[in-house]
Computed example of a mutant assay.
Amino acid sequence: MDLKDKVVVITGGGRGLGRAMALELANKGARLALVDLNQDDLDETLNQVKAAGSDGRTYVCNVSKEAEVEALFESIVADMGGLNGLVNNAGITRDGLFIKVKDGEIVSKMSMDQWNLVMDVNLTGTFLCAREAAAQMIKNKQEGCIINISSISRSGNMGQTNYTATKAGVEAMAVTWAKELARYGIRAASIAPGYIGTEMVMAMKEEAREKIAAGIPAKRLGKPEEIAHTVSFILENDYVSGRCFEVDGGLRI
């Protein structure tokens, strides 16, 4: 796919990885539909997209709400004249041990709120956005690509039962969609980042960041731009589909 003037939706596009993706794609001439819950964050990303010489629109949407997502993709197509790509980047964490035990006694369990919130955003939100994106592409006879952002944690990570379940799920869904949607010229893939130097990670104490980096074969955190570059590679290579790209500096959990 030549990204010049193509319409690409990025959920969680207000900051972090989403902002890095937006700038990467803007530099290649794509037009961005940026989706998030915080309008101020969206406005800042859009300003940077425009400074890079491209354009786009912003949309406030809770991706876990079916009616909002349906309206979102109708609006994007009406506003921007079509839809060629989707990056399912929106996600949250609510970490905690499955069962916490102290002195032989159970002191806490992962709550249903912790479970449901992560499921709603990471798994249901990804499902809803991809469903509506694919429906619009098929309806308008436009080929396209859907990318799910998974995680190295999809293989299982302590304190993240809820998160790992969703990140394994979004990878598996991308494989399923690659098989189901190929007949319509729609590809699907996923990316599993390792430890990336987003604002949240860089806000950690330096000692903590150094400890994390020491356990990575590459001996450093990944850069948001490196995940963004992987997004553009998948979008641009029309023979890539159904695969998960691990971008983790050689780390395996």
Rank of each mutant, 00 (worst) to 15 (best):
K100H: 12
K100S: 12
D103M: 07
G104H: 04
G104I: 06
G104N: 06
G104D: 08
E105R: 05
I106V: 12
V107G: 00
S108P: 11
S108A: 12
S108M: 06
K109P: 01
K109C: 10
M110T: 11
M110N: 08
S111P: 10
S111E: 12
S111C: 11
M112A: 14
M112F: 14
M112W: 14
D113E: 14
N116Q: 15
N116Y: 15
V118F: 08
V118S: 09
M119L: 11
D120Q: 15
D120I: 10
V121C: 12
V121I: 15
L123C: 07
T124P: 12
F127D: 08
F127E: 10
F127K: 04
C129T: 12
A130C: 06
A130K: 00
A130F: 02
R131I: 07
R131V: 07
E132Y: 15
E132M: 12
A133F: 05
A133K: 00
A133N: 11
A133V: 08
A134S: 06
A135Y: 09
Q136G: 05
N140R: 09
N140H: 13
G144Y: 01
G144P: 01
I146C: 02
I147C: 02
N148A: 01
N148I: 02
I149R: 01
S150D: 03
S150R: 00
S151R: 00
